[in-house]
Design a protein around this nucleic acid. Structure first.
Lengths: 214, 214
DNA sequence: TAGATTGTTAATCGATTAACAATC
DNA sequence: TAGATTGTTAATCGATTAACAATC
């Protein structure tokens, strides 16, 4: 059956988890998997997996389940992971350097092509043989390499300025580690990695638990 | 009016964002804020903020809005941030070291009290004057210091084992950076920081955009 | 007082789950 | 064939939003 609904964002955010689990299954030499089995691995119901996939097509076989390799290919295709995406990283503090040293980008369809910092003392140094450039060069690199995706690991105080710079340069999606919500125009996606906020939401439950409220 | 509903987890996850925005307002010297103004800063509707807060009490004044300092205190109290939470970190790769070097824990109600790795070559070294201990010492430290909260920055391949170790030691909440969903018993909260998954959900939109589908 | 904004209810919207015919 | 599991529909559940009386 044809599906014309545009898939909700929650569904899109689950697809990478399905893909990853399928990669692990493949490594383990598993060739076929049911929605039930896949769901148990990632704590999602079987019905949800089937419903999610139905937004994009029919990938399974009744009575059998899904061919791991095939379903993985389909999902990678849906996510646009058949191509390699150049990305840039702005901010080379402790966290930025750790990200720059991450070895896994290439195998995950991403390639770090630029490293930027606005601190003149850092510009010209290098991290893992990758040269740190000035923020003023962002625009040039983004345009030359057709970069659409940026990681922002800068202090809250300059996050909005850097966002504006990235948007002006042509970046369309930003993953921000800065502890602040930035404003970006329509058509630019911003997502946040916010470990402190996550920890603070867990202390809520810990505090409740400690006082024996459940 | 009294509210007996237990607040949904989505609400709990938004509270830290409200708290943070209020801290910024306080720094800026703003004393009073309406749900409208607060909402604009963090891209949340005014109605949602008021509804969220109503799970916990009445903190505003009709016609006026909220006293920034008071509302912040209330939210910090709700989140259990009136006490300092000891935390441990397992895994001292690039990312783990960056986390260990993070200076902001103290001011955010968290205190790193232990750093662990299972690599004998790393045990005994130190990061920022904090000694790396063997994973075998997790249980002792957790019990001695009453630690409930752990950050896990280990490879996917040992994430489940480390989780089991943490749970056995008495940890009740885990923030995991490992790219795998781990199984934990009831009453133990696990949350994930998964930058690659987030990037992969953004490539979906970039791929759509590139092919001019919207 | 008049204007503004809260807290709360009811309406709406959207996501998840259950159930089952289709079919491998 | 009998058993298993999909894809899809309808029912349920839960979260967001709109609206407004209460009130500062």
């Amino acid at each position: 059956m044809e599906r014309l609904d545009t898939p909700p964002d929650v569904v899109i955010r689950r697809l990478p988890l399905y893909a990853r689990s399928l990669r692990y299954l493949l490594q383990e030499g598993v060739h076929s998997v049911s929605s039930q089995e896949l769901g148990e691995r990632i704590n999602v119901t079987a019905a949800q997996i089937r419903k999610d996939l139905s937004y994009f097509g029919e990938f399974g076989k009744q009575g059998i389940g899904y061919d791991v390799q095939k379903l993985l290919s389909h999902i990678e295709h849906i996510l646009g992971l058949t191509q390699e995406w150049p990305i840039i990283l702005v901010g080379t503090g402790h966290l930025g350097q750790a990200i720059a040293r991450y070895e896994g980008f290439r195998s995950r369809g991403l390639r770090l092509v630029g490293l930027f910092d606005d601190d003149p003392a850092k510009v010209g140094q290098s991290v893992d043989s990758m040269l740190i450039l000035s923020n003023e060069e962002i625009s040039r690199v983004v345009q030359e390499q057709g970069v659409k995706l940026a990681i922002m690991a800068v202090p809250a105080s300059c996050a909005q300025d850097v966002t504006d710079l990235l948007v002006a340069a042509g970046i369309r999606a930003i993953l921000s580690y800065a502890p602040i919500i930035v404003q970006a125009p329509e058509g630019v996606w911003v997502r946040y990695i916010d470990p402190i906020a996550v920890l603070h939401s867990m202390t809520y439950y810990l505090a409740r638990y400690e006082s024996n409220l459940f």
